[in-house]
Amino acid sequence: MSTLHTVNKSPFATTTLASCLNHALEGDAILLIEDGVYGGVVGTELAKALAAAKGVSLYVLSGDLTARGIDTARLVKGMKPIDYAGFVALATEHDRAQAWL
C-alpha cells in the first residue's frame, strides 16, 4: 500500500512541499508538477530535505520543468524526470493519489 503525492506549488511560496515531505511514507512517491518543479532544484534547504527522504521516490514532470527553463542537470540527485505517460504509470503503480494543493 503506497501513495503517489503530487505537489504543484513552489516551495518558496508555500509550505506545501514541506508538508508533503512530512507525511510521505516509505514506499511512496512524490511527483513535482506545475510550479512544484521549482522545488526539485539543488542548492536549497528544501532540496536537502528531499534528498534525506528515505524510501520515497522523487519524480518531476519534464514538460513543466523545460517550460520553466530548468535543466535536468540542476535536479536533486535521484529525482527522475517523467512525461505524462510516466505520471499515469506512477498513478497505477501506487494505491492512491494525494494532491497537495
Binding site: T3, N22, H23, L25
Partner: peptide
Amino acid sequence: NRDEMAAIMGDQDVVLSF
C-alpha cells in the same frame, strides 16, 4: 501527531484534497 496523520493518509482508498 504528524506520524499518526501520515499513517491515516496512507490507509485510505480515496483522498479528496481541498
